[in-house]
């Protein structure tokens, strides 16, 4: 299941960075205004084994979506490498990349923006088959589209309708059908349930799990909802300001989070029995996510970290192993502090 099995991972990301450069206008440039650089993803390394679900979690704006899109080369990476099933995706020429796209797909967050309003559902789902010439005839194309439409839980007649005739949940099923009709192996799920009603979320999560089992899929599942990640993922990676701060098997990371940022995320999950016997500490992070335009020095989390010491402000912490397949990047890992333990948490200022 995980990379610890010794199999080569299906997807391997090494030192991936994405920097957006925005150049000022001509006059401002002449006046000496420098280019603005936003490092959305910085030096991310992760691996996903075949058939695995890696959950990617973090606040809005931390670079989760950019990471997912850069892996698929929807955005070109600035540095780093993405290897898919032994092939260096970042080095592929356009023709080879097009062929590779059949094998790696994406499901989007907003089911209202992700479907072309002027095309019928059949056109939208049939597009991958047409682009990759996967159907030999119109009849076969229609059969395959109808098959996947029914597989994702819609009626066959949906193919003749337009996206605006469906609800958000149904549209998300259309988006899933489009991603899956070409039988890909790897799917980036970019917050596929965050825009949906809670009651619909559970249905879509279950559908994604069923499809993964039946079609042998591998997911990078991006979310800011810890409970969805906890339910779906095999492993989890926690992202803060473009960096992975903690990574490991989901049961270990969620039950024994080692990075103070992961701990603060965990403490934000509402408890079912707040007065129960295992009352845990609450961490209240102060301030907003710092601007990636001007990221903090040293450990990027030090501006909001209740445990920050001098070293955190100056030195970027290295990623260290803290258990089987479990790693984190923090200067104070060896002290085994936990913000969730009321004894360790510093008193509120």
């Amino acid at each position: 299941m995980s990379t610890a099995d010794g199999d080569a991972p299906l997807l391997s990301v090494e030192g991936l960075s994405k920097t957006y450069v925005s150049r000022p206008g001509f006059v401002a440039r002449m006046a000496g205004t420098p280019d603005t650089r936003v490092q959305a993803v910085s030096d991310v390394s992760l691996q996903i084994g075949r058939g695995e679900i890696l959950g990617l979690i973090g606040e809005s704006g931390c670079g989760k979506s950019t990471l997912g899109r850069t892996i698929l080369r929807l955005h070109e990476p600035t540095t780093g490498r993405v290897t898919f099933d032994g092939t260096d995706v970042t080095a592929l020429d356009p023709a080879a990349m097009k062929a590779m796209r059949r094998r790696m797909q994406i499901i989007f967050q907003d089911p209202y923006a992700s479907l072309n309003p002027r095309r019928t559902v059949g056109d939208i789902i049939g597009l991958p088959l047409r682009l990759h010439r996967l159907a030999t005839s119109e009849a076969e194309l229609r059969d395959r589209v109808t098959e996947i439409v029914e597989r994702v839980g819609l009626k066959a007649r949906a193919v003749d309708l337009y996206p605006h005739q469906f609800s958000g949940g149904q549209r998300q099923r259309i988006g899933i059908a489009r991603a899956l009709v070409s039988h890909p192996e790897f799917i980036v799920c970019d917050e596929p349930v965050s825009a949906l009603d809670v009651s619909i979320q559970a249905q879509i999560v279950q559908l994604l799990l069923d499809l993964k089992r039946d079609m042998g899929l591998t997911y990078l599942f991006i979310s800011h909802d810890i409970s969805v990640i906890g339910y779906m993922a095999d492993r989890v990676a926690v992202m803060y300001l473009g960096e992975i701060v903690e990574q490991g098997p989901v049961e270990r990371v969620l039950s024994d989070p080692r990075h103070p940022y992961t701990q603060s995320l965990m403490s934000a999950v509402p408890e079912v029995h707040p007065q129960g016997p295992h009352k845990r500490g609450r961490v209240r992070l102060t301030g907003d996510l710092p601007s990636p335009l001007n990221p903090p020095s040293g450990c990027k989390f030090h501006t909001r970290c209740p445990l920050a010491i001098d070293a955190c402000r100056k030195v970027t912490p290295a990623t260290e192993g803290v258990g089987p397949g479990h790693s984190a990047a923090c200067h104070r890992l060896s002290e085994r502090l936990s913000l969730l333990d009321p004894d360790d948490a510093p008193a509120a200022p």
Binding site: R101, Q109, S114, N116, P128, L131
Partner: peptide, 17 residues
Amino acid sequence: ELEYVEAARALGASRGH
């Protein structure tokens, strides 16, 4: 910038398409 255009790119559609 809309997601359906990004979706078409993710599917391997050409710039002309």
